[in-house]
């Protein structure tokens, strides 16, 4: 199995009330690709990762991590 990069795209998207399709259009990817990225099946290219961070207005390390993100409230 490949090394896992953990991400919080789905969480950020839900929190901001942004649909998969809206995010896909903003980034220029297919909406199914958002699902692939959220599930970690695909990793974004560095450029795409930076675009994502830019879109949400946060640092890349807020979205991506080599270690699992701590559960909220724990």
């Amino acid at each position: 199995m490949t090394e896992n990069v953990h991400n919080r795209i789905a969480m950020l998207r839900a929190e901001r009330g942004i649909s998969r399709r809206q995010l896909a259009e903003a980034l220029g990817v297919h909406y199914q690709t958002i699902g692939y990225l959220e599930r970690g099946e695909y990793s974004p290219s560095l450029q795409l990762a930076l675009q994502l961070a830019d879109y949400f207005g946060v640092g890349v390390e807020v979205i991506f991590s080599l270690r699992p993100f701590p559960r909220l409230g724990s």
Partner: peptide
């Protein structure tokens, strides 16, 4: 045609990159 999406496997992970 819209933007193209390039996908590949670099031996460790599957990558996706959108490009004009």
């Amino acid at each position: 045609f819209g933007k193209a999406e390039v996908r590949w496997f670099d031996g460790e992970q599957h990558l996706v990159h959108p490009t004009d």
